[in-house]
Design a protein around this nucleic acid. Structure first.
Lengths: 249, 249
DNA sequence: TTAATCTATTTGTCTGAGTAATTAATTGTG
DNA sequence: CACAATTAATTACTCAGACAAATAGATTAA
């Protein structure tokens, strides 16, 4: 195949801080990953051949192959000699991988998937708050207080406020001392921050959520795991409702 | 550096069905990933240089680089020009990635991490059972019944019995209709199956778990989400105790 | 002390060749 | 005719070597 046809604009590394596509192979992985998540390639589809596809993208086979390794590592595709590189069925995808989540939200995010993420969050975060209440680490409590202070200074609609909110949830997760929980929430929180960022672009937050956050903190400080869980449940519930409002219309 | 020193036996692709190391780059990724998870390389350590390291392993730079891409995709390492390839801090690792979990259990698994996985399971699975009870899909119910039947035919200590047990839990997750939950449990279940496999090598299961499983199924069939959650909680609790017994001494 | 510049080192990208694995067609065999 | 063994063709995989781009660290200038 000749290089005359350029069906896609030339792949160029994106300059993002800590982003996924600072290098060429990263940019290709981002492009292809987002395309797969968006449904442009369906499970079972083959990605032409190495030579054909790399020429199509106008990059070397090395760069293309390294990008494919990234996708394969996340369970999106599988390469086999003679069979080519095929998109794997959706249940093999590593949907909780932070980068994959980023690709999922790069395009029009699937409503059902967003809902399932919030459902997962509604399961995990209250339980995490309860665990944190049982452990009640003093340093962790201080982190939460700091984050809460940050939220009082800035409104949640601001960038700084959202960061403080994230820090608050992160501090609780840290306080559980559970590595698996920490990693999991790191993924989910990243995704949630995407949706909230999406949301706040349209409308400001209708209510002041500080008291709700303080309730969680107080319960953890008092080692009341049941109250902590319940308070966190309310918090997630509210976040879900806000998101639903902004995504429905 | 010359190739005279061979500190490690030559890397060779492992022949596993659907395994991680069928190719050379996969074998390297497996070797390095397992080494990192085992703590042989600590966060902040650099992996020499591409040329040095690839010669050390006696493979080409391409194969080594593709292996590194896999590790980088899972958040284990990060490569930057002039700075080399460094092991990232543990909170960047994608610990819920099935492959990473496999590497974690390739060596002596960290007790604290196993505990945190069970803690996560104890959080997620009862909630999933409750969700399944709310949805109550007829096809899913049939899958659970089939898996349960498989468990009655074989004892849980057998390979077939363990597969049936996995199918049972999988069917419940499927019934939730929550993609995020499904992916998450796919990871955790894989890890748990590792530990149970480890366990059963030493001693047979002391009790017959069929009635406990049936209780979960009945509660889901009756759309009693509270009962389903509680029954599943008991199930996970028992599994945790069994594992604790076999890992303590 | 601070900030700008330079340089050496390291990863990133490209090219082209050859190897190994696997599917699919083909042939042989009951 | 059905089925197993063989072969051929396609594809990913591995290798080697060169050059480009980026950057951490030293050097110099303000």
């Amino acid at each position: 195949m000749s290089k005359t046809t350029a069906p896609t604009e030339p792949i160029k590394p994106v300059r993002e801080p800590r982003g996924t596509g600072r290098r060429l192979y990263g940019a290709i992985a981002h492009k292809l990953g987002a395309a797969i998540l968006a449904g442009e390639y369906l499970p079972g589809d083959v990605l032409s051949g190495e030579i054909v596809f790399s020429e199509l993208l106008d990059v070397s086979r090395s760069a293309y192959r390294e990008a494919i390794q990234v996708l394969a590592a996340k369970g999106l595709v599988e390469s086999r000699p003679k069979a080519g590189t095929r998109v794997l069925p959706r249940n093999r995808w590593n949907l909780l991988d932070p980068e994959v989540l980023g690709w999922a939200f790069a395009g029009q995010p699937d409503i059902a998937f967003v809902r399932s993420l919030f459902e997962l969050r509604a399961i995990v975060e209250p339980a995490a708050a309860a665990l944190a209440a049982e452990r009640r680490d003093k340093a962790a409590l201080k982190s939460m207080r700091d984050a809460l202070a940050g939220m009082t200074r800035h409104t949640l609609a601001s960038e700084a406020g959202r960061l403080a909110d994230r820090d608050f949830h992160n501090a609780i997760l840290l306080a559980t001392g559970n590595d698996a929980l920490i990693v999991l929430s790191a993924s989910v929180c990243a995704a949630v921050s995407w949706t909230t960022q999406f949301k706040h672009r349209q409308r400001a937050l209708p209510r002041n959520p500080i008291p709700d956050h303080r309730r969680v903190l107080d319960a953890i400080a008092a080692s009341d795991s049941a109250a902590a869980s319940e308070a966190m449940r309310v918090l997630v519930e509210l976040a879900l409702e806000d998101t639903r409002q902004s995504m429905q219309p």
